[in-house]
Simulated scan of single mutants.
Amino acid sequence: MWTIEHPNKTFSYLNINYQANKTLRLFALIREAKYYSFSSEDRARLEASVNSNLSIKNVQIKSPDNPVKQVSAKLISYQI
């Protein structure tokens, strides 16, 4: 039997800007290849958002298949 760790612990090395004073915190971690599979219009609309609560960061995460390797990913966060 195996257990799954909380994402805050699993991805603690990303130094996520977790704002404790916010009532809603939404984080999406998407491999870069998956992010670029979305339509260019959808990506442009998301990236052009002027909402100060939304941020998109390029990050390197440990590969789930081989933790020694790094995988390019996007960290999308929305906190209000």
Rank of each mutant, 00 (worst) to 15 (best):
D65R: 03
S40C: 05
S55Q: 04
L29N: 03
I80L: 05
Q70Y: 03
I61A: 02
L14N: 05
P67L: 11
S39M: 06
S12Q: 09
L46S: 12
R31Y: 09
L29A: 05
Y13A: 15
S52I: 15
N17K: 01
I76W: 05
I4C: 11
R43L: 09
F38E: 06
I56Y: 01
S12R: 09
S55T: 10
L46M: 07
I56A: 01
L29T: 01
R43N: 06
A48I: 04
K69I: 09
Q79R: 07
N58S: 02
D42R: 09
F11W: 11
I16C: 00
E5W: 08
Q70I: 13
A73M: 05
P7C: 09
A73P: 00
S12W: 13
A28R: 11
H6R: 10
S55L: 02
V68T: 14
Q79A: 06
P67F: 15
N51F: 08
P7Q: 05
T10S: 14
K9Y: 15
Y36T: 15
N53R: 11
Y35I: 01
I61P: 00
I61S: 00
E32M: 02
I76P: 00
Y13W: 04
V71Q: 01
W2M: 13
N58H: 04
F11N: 01
N21C: 03
L29H: 03
Y13R: 15
I80F: 00
N51I: 03
Q60K: 12
A20H: 07
M1H: 11
S40H: 14
